[in-house]
Amino acid sequence: MERVKTGVPGLDEMLRGGLLPQTTTLVEGAPGTGKTTLGMQFIYNGIIECDEPGIILTFEQFPSQFYRDAANFGWDFRRLEEEGKLRIIMTSPEVSLQDLQRVGGQIEALAREMGARRILVDSISHFQRLTHDPLQLRHLTYTFVNGLKREGLTAILTWESPVLLGEPGEHDIGIPFIVDTYIILRYVEIESAVHKALLVLKMRGSDHDKDIRQFDITSRGIEVRSRFEGHEGIMSGSPRRMADSFVQAFVRR
């Protein structure tokens, strides 16, 4: 089966080789967990390693911030834009949604002109600005996601979780149901130190690794490491040692 490699060390292995083509992936996490970095890495590796041009659609962060942040990892986004392999478009959910629905819109024209295969949308949370009606919001997001698929794009959509530690808040609009792959990034506190955890919760049409893995943001971007050993309740943000749980469950009864 054809795969779209993210190029993120450790992640493609979890995804059994990479994402499926023309699918959408939701990357959810609290501020600073690395959602945008993961998305930028996906776009950068696509251009450099797979010769697949990419688009970044940003609803809040200025393109100049992307250039700067990418440069910290050694990714020269300005040069890639000059070479026509990357476009960072700053716009708003209302404009991009309208644009994607019309024939010959900017995203459609750009995707065809550049031969773009990948897109990062940062962040889809801003669609909440469009309406307070959860059903309407789900409908709008579904239309948007299908527009990206129509253009042959494999997409990463970021979602901002307001919860720093612990369980994610509920998605009132059911975004995880709309997307094909759902990746969660979490802060985890273990013995007075904050670690980062990554879980592939869902991958439609493919098997995937069910482990909760540690990851780091290094000078080269995100690197996914081994699974958390000896702890449970990782995604709660405050895991317990397995032995403590055993004592709690059986000895202290």
């Binding site: 393109p63 100049s64 960072i88 708003s92 209302e94």
Partner: peptide
């Protein structure tokens, strides 16, 4: 000039 691929409304 700094964000050459911006497309948006006057409000935004």
């Amino acid at each position: 000039g700094e964000n050459p691929y911006t497309t948006d409304t006057a409000e935004n």
